[in-house]
Structures are given as C-alpha cells and as structure tokens.
Design a protein around this nucleic acid. Structure first.
Lengths: 217, 217
DNA sequence: TAGATTGTTAATCGATTAACAATC
DNA sequence: TAGATTGTTAATCGATTAACAATC
C-alpha cells in the first residue's frame, strides 16, 4: 500500500496484466517453462519493450540472457492480481447473464467463490443454479454483511442497478462487478469494474461502418 | 473512408463515443433537449475539454453560447457509430451467455438482428430461444453465407473459438464479437471486438488487493 | 447587449518506443 | 567465452488539459 506517487502503477499497465497472466498460463499448460519479452510480444500483441517496462513496475522477474521463467512469472503475476486469495461473491439478477457467470468454472478456479444468487422474481426465488440457491433480493444487504461478501456482481436491468449497488455497499462489499449499462454512483473507496456490453458492441459497429477510418493507437 | 493519416480517429476517442451516446439517450428520455460539454462531463466523468475535442473530430455539432442539441447530437453519434443500419448476426454457443445475449432487447433495438443460434450439442439443436432456432454448428458457414450475416458472435468455450471464427470468416462475416478468453487469429480486414470477462474480473481483483497503489490515468 | 459556451490552438503530461550497457 | 536478453534511461509520440478568441 504505497502512498508515494512515484511508485504508483497506471491503469493502462494494470489492464494488460491479466493478458500476460492468461498467456503464461497457456504456456504452462503446454509445458513450456522459459519465455522472453519477445515471445510474449508475439502472443499478446504488445511490444517487447512495453512488456519489459510493465513487468519492471513490479520487480525484476527476468534474467539477462535467459528471459523469464514461466511458472515463476505466472505465479508472481497471480499474486500481484490478488488471485492467490479467495473472494466471497454474490450475484444479483438471476437471469441468463447471472446464470452464465454462476456456471462459469473459470471464476471459481481463480478463487472467486459464489455464495448465492439474488433476484426479486418470486418464481425463481428458492430455485438452485447448480448447488447455489437463489434468494430474495430483500435479504441481500443482510446476507452480504453476514457472510463477508467482498465482491458484489450486478446482472440486473439498468433500472435496478443503483439500488443493488447501494445494498451491496451498505452490506460492506469492497468491489462491484457491474454488467448493467449504468454508471453507478458510489463512494471513492468502493472499486467499480464495469462490463458495458452495449459499448463494446457499438464500438464494433463503428469499426464495421468506418473501416480504415481510424488509427491503431 | 479517408486514407489520409490526418483525418483518422484514435481508438481511445472511439471507445468514448458509445458512452456519450448512452447518456444523450438518457437525457432524451428525460425530455432534456439542450446540453453542454460541462453537463456531459458531469455525466460521463470525462473532462469538458476532452468532450469538445472528441466531438470536433466528427464535426461542429455545437453552438457557441448555447451548447449542444441533445436530439441532434444523439442522432449524429448514432450515425457515426453505424446504429442507423440493421446488421444480421448469429450467435455460436447456445449456453447461458449466448442465451443472455439472444434475449437482450437492447441489441435488437439498436439494429442488431439475430437470425439464429448455433451449437454442437444435439440435445439443444432444434430448440428455440424466443422465436430463434438453435441450429447445428455444422451448418454455420453455409448459413452465414446464405443469409448475409455480417457479425458473428462467439460464446463457446475457449477451445472452439478459433474454429468458429474460421467458419464465420469463410462464410463472409465482417466482424466478430468474441466472448471466449482467446486471442483469435484472423485477417487484418476482419474486425474483432473482444469481451474478456476474466480480464475484467482480474482487474477488479487487482484493485481490491492493491487499494491506492495505482493512479487514475 | 451581456453571458455563456463552443471550436481550436498551445502547453502539459503520460505512455510507448528505441537504444544499449549490464550481465547471465 | 559468445550470444542472448534483461532492466533502464532517453527520445519520441500521442493524448489530455488549459486557455481564450470567436460568436451565438
């Protein structure tokens, strides 16, 4: 928890880390235990120079003349990303999207433990997704408080997103993973990570419409 | 389709456009017909200066001393984003995520017409999601070719993503909206837009783990 | 008209790339 | 050792912010 400005890492760098992590994981699976900034460049599309700069924000993980040990670097990045811990999570909005996330094995494997789903539709309350029960959204705040939920996931329609966020925060979550097309208003100490699918699709639409009319950077 | 470097727009700018568009839509719904770079700044979190710069890449939509007409600007941005057209789309991977996208009304309203879902699981082939049939993935390439599908959506597991992309491209899609945690290898003229949920969640995890240890920019 | 707000240029800031000495 | 590749500094490039004349 450094407070000097000098030591802070820019968000641009941080958003590249998961991609390094994923490719290192793939190398690991393929039994490759040595890599280089050049190889990672080929895999990720970032320049070798940029990769060396990025990694050196966190320490000298490499060795001159050799490169990087895949297992070591993968594990270090995992720690930096906080993937060596278990996070308690809940999902509010038990529709298809909520269920999709609930069923995705990758998240559980990375340490994100789903404790419950919440919905306001009486028809689905009490049902189970796998072995996870769907509860009444009225119980949300109490459940969050009582179970040390650190990450609240929002997969409700836009209209309800802010209310759900408020309940999460009162219950004590530290971060919110938000899929609703809304900009949540929260205190500075709450981390919000948005997945705005419409913005992503509209960007694709732009590129289809204006082929060539843009620059890489 | 300008080819001069001078007139090209940077991706950073383009990725902000859908957010402007969304907030203008909300103002419109609220019956507000006049806005300013200052108000848009408050809504979007970008600086007023940045917003004026961004919009002026595409033309002078504002009026000194007045600001911007909401309806006009919304409509202009819609055109710039290509939302005034209809795109034929299909989804491959009829699991929860594919169904979530299939059921999302917002996309249909924005002109993205879903023609079919595809899957390789015989148990779901022939079923319907709403009034959209799930077809055998073996028919994918032919269907894409025969129905002028321009956008192919991938919601399969990682292992199949590249094969699906290849079939899409052979069939003639121009763009791919990819939800699989894989970096697809495609020709330069194919537009790829990735939604990497794991990268998003891992970024959230980083911020939770390293609170304060980063800078805004 | 007076006040407001744009469009646009110039200044600043930050991120990427290039280069190379250090060293395994 | 010779070759390879890092870590790191300096140079370049691009994006953001500041400022203000133009003008509605």
């Amino acid at each position: 928890m450094d407070t000097d400005k000098e030591n802070k890492i820019s968000i641009t760098v941080i958003r590249r880390l998961p991609k390094y992590y994923r490719h290192l994981g793939e190398l690991l699976r393929r039994g490759i235990n040595r890599t280089s900034s050049q190889e990672l460049s080929r895999l990720t599309g970032f320049t070798a120079s940029q990769i060396r700069q990025d990694l050196n924000n966190f320490g000298g993980f490499g060795q001159q003349g050799y490169g990087y040990n895949v297992e070591e670097l993968h594990s270090q990045l995992g720690k930096i990303l906080g993937l060596d811990k278990i996070y308690n999570t809940v999902i509010t909005g038990a529709g298809n999207l909520g269920q999709a996330i609930a069923n995705y094995r990758g998240f559980a494997e990375a340490g994100f433990k789903l404790l419950s789903l919440f919905d306001k539709n009486p028809k689905v309350i009490g049902l189970k997704i796998g072995d996870i029960e769907i509860r009444d959204v009225d119980e949300l705040e109490d459940f969050v408080r009582g179970n040390n939920v650190e990450i609240g996931i929002i997969t409700t329609p836009r209209e309800h997103a802010q209310d759900v966020a408020d309940a999460y925060i009162k219950g004590g979550v530290k971060g919110i993973w938000n899929f609703a097309p809304a900009d949540l208003k929260v205190d500075d100490n709450i981390i919000i990570e948005n997945v705005h699918l419409n913005e992503s699709l509209f960007t694709l639409s732009y590129f289809l419409t204006n082929k060539g009319d843009y620059v890489k950077s």
